[in-house]
Design a protein around this nucleic acid. Structure first.
Lengths: 407, 407
DNA sequence: AGTATATGTTCCGCGTTTAGACAAAATCAT
DNA sequence: ATGATTTTGTCTAAACGCGGAACATATACT
């Protein structure tokens, strides 16, 4: 039961029905391809005539194309199969992280074309934008056969205002109120969209075409690395919040008397489960201080720690298990608060999932209010899936498939 | 940008446009009444002809009626004003609480008719249903002039499955998987809707017609009394969750090493700010134990405590101030997690709002990630507004005004 | 070759928005 | 008082899109 906002609504115009059905048809082609006009009519429960008209409109806009005839199963005329047309167009996704920046090229369906490239992140915004523009142009030249680039999506680790195209605050990059979108768009001559990386990860799951992705209800993406980013999806839409800061579960406390967090508060979940927290536990010292670390700790990563744990290092295993427990306790907060249908979890620590899953799950059960909550599906998203990059791509590729604003 | 769920969508039919615009018109009449056909046309940005047709349909269904001619401001023909027609129909709202159960009668707009009545809650479900049915019938006889009852809405302090009409679990009533809706509906011969009381409170704010109620973005209702209930509103819709348990921020921890909570876990926000927690702090002993309390504590309420604090009792003031601080710290979690446009807060403790507001606000600022978050609007909803009862009423009155399912 | 079946197109009916004309009702100016 | 002006509400024709059915096309089975 949704209330119509009496100060901001969309009246149904003469073309609204068509617009709605057109988008439904487009989405069905996207998820069910290859699919025929008759299939569409059956899926949508409309007459074939209507489906035919919708299809011819989509064909006219080159959003889809007619592929080879399908093999008819029984007798009767063979169907002409329809496909999303991403033959001569591509999308670029960018993931800016504290140390490195990654670039991917995909088609409109988000299918990867070529390899993921990366380079060291220069925190000077102007320099980064110029280098990014140069490298994206280079990639587009290298993969000339993939066609024209429809747009560039950028995932940024920080607070982003996508409407204004500005990064309000990105602590790990030391950026404050930076105009990222427009200079990059100018340098490239291609439209650019930017988004917070936690929300981008969530977006990637929403728009993934894999069949195991739930489409209804809400879901949550938890990304654990330097910080903890959370993206919330409600009714097929990423929750944005009044000031674009929804999803900061990383700074919900486990214990207000706990360790100091980078945000200034104490006992945030992030301060228990971030990579730095895990490593600090292992080395028995607070590594968050900015003073130069000794050689042992400087280049030691969570992956290294997991390798040691798997090799039998009891101290390493203990540090990871601790993180696992805190991970579960924090997930319980999310589940109690939102009761999502599924939780996705990504980040370096998930490479140890087989080790930590029982601990995470038991800690989760310890604090969830109901049995159902404790049994909430948790899906690990491996780093190879590049959720941030996929989400960045979705910023550009998804709007064409989005539901029209109505009522 | 909302994704269309390819497994559960609604195709636009021939009458869909009309359905959408009809609901928009109905909502505009609801919020802007008195309003003329011409006003509607201007508000909706459609021709007067369309508005006229929509209005005649609504008139035909007796959802609205034509009132007196309006005074024309300038020159020209005087408009005929339109009003929501709740002249001969009413709605009953019921609020079941641990100790007492409350009943209200309203019109379709949620305007109170008569007085709120109450009686002691009998925890035996069958007995309660019979008494409730008897009393509701009596009320409807007493207020015969308000017309036929369209339905009964019931707010229950616990986990509710509104679709099935069952109370899954209500700790304070010791109910587990109880069929409440259907027996009550049978006993009354009137449709019944049930809902969790936290969600009902949120619903009451969504559907309130007061102009200061924000309609866009998300908002949160926090109800502090025996427990802490939270209702979350996103895009004009109450967040329900996969198992109807979304909104349990009361069991998100402030400190996992904190006091034991009634839910079995430790350090839940609820265990810091519930009325019992506040009183326990005052009396210096854990009152949650079920052993009979001494006469001093047995009938001593938070209102009494506040009265003492206002009278200068330093110990009382300290207990309340403590609660205020924890309240702010917990609100910070909600704001960090959801970044709502506004937080509503209800419960006995809010009668001391003038005392505690600065403390709540400073604790909030202490833990919110951004300045914006710390400045989030907080609106106190006084007990006299009966948010739970209003929400219960909305369960019945609101569906007629809800947005149609589309796309 | 003929029949059955499935696909895709075309045509008309009907409901809804869009645009504009027109009557009704009230005020203002003369 | 009377006519001009303005606003409201109704009405009609056109444009657009779904609903339904007929029809042509294409394939397989008998």
């Amino acid at each position: 039961m949704r209330k119509i906002n009496p100060h901001d609504f969309t009246v149904a115009r003469r073309g609204t029905s068509r617009e709605i059905n057109r988008q439904i048809a487009l989405n069905l082609i996207r998820t069910h391809q290859p699919v025929s006009r008759a299939d569409l009519a059956r899926l949508m429960n409309v007459r074939r005539g209507v489906a035919s008209l919708l299809v011819s409109e989509l064909l006219g806009e080159s959003l889809i194309f007619e592929g080879a005839m399908g093999e008819s199963v029984g007798r009767g005329r063979r169907p002409t199969f329809l496909f999303i047309d991403s033959r001569q167009r591509c999308v670029v996704g960018v993931d800016i992280r504290a140390t490195r920046t990654y670039i991917i090229v995909t088609d409109l369906m988000g299918r990867q074309l070529g390899v993921v490239s990366s380079f060291q992140t220069n925190r000077e915004v102007d320099v980064l934008i110029q280098e990014l523009a140069r490298r994206i142009k280079q990639v587009l030249v290298d993969y000339k056969e993939v066609g024209a680039c429809e747009g560039v999506g950028v995932a940024v680790p920080g607070m982003v205002d996508p409407a204004k195209g500005r990064v309000m605050h990105a602590p790990t990059l030391a950026w404050r109120d930076v105009n990222l979108r427009d200079p990059l768009a100018v340098a490239l001559g291609i439209p650019v969209q930017i988004e917070n990386s936690g929300k981008a990860c969530a977006l990637a799951q929403v728009w993934a075409t894999r069949s195991d992705v739930i489409a209804s209800g809400s879901s949550v993406f938890v990304s654990v690395s330097d910080g903890v980013g959370v993206g919330i999806v409600v009714n097929g839409e990423v929750l944005r919040g009044r000031h674009n800061t929804a999803g900061e579960f990383g700074h919900v406390p486990l214990s207000i008397d706990g360790p100091r967090c980078s945000c200034g508060a104490t006992g945030c979940w992030e301060s228990y489960v971030s990579n730095l927290a895990t490593l600090s536990r292992y080395f028995g010292q607070d590594l968050s201080e900015q003073r130069p670390r000794d050689t042992e700790t400087a280049n030691f990563s969570v992956e290294d720690l997991i390798a040691r744990a798997r090799a039998g290092d009891a101290k390493a295993l203990a540090a990871i298990n601790s993180t696992a427990r805190y991970l579960g306790l924090g997930l319980a907060s999310i589940i109690n608060a939102l009761d999502p249908g599924r939780v996705y979890i990504g980040g370096e620590i998930t490479t140890a999932w087989s080790l930590i899953e029982p601990i995470v799950r038991s800690a989760l059960r310890e604090r969830t209010l109901t049995e159902f909550g404790g049994a909430t599906e948790i899906h690990v998203v491996p780093a190879e899936d590049h959720p941030r990059l996929r989400g960045a791509v979705a910023l550009v590729a998804a709007p064409a498939f989005a539901a029209p604003m109505v009522a």
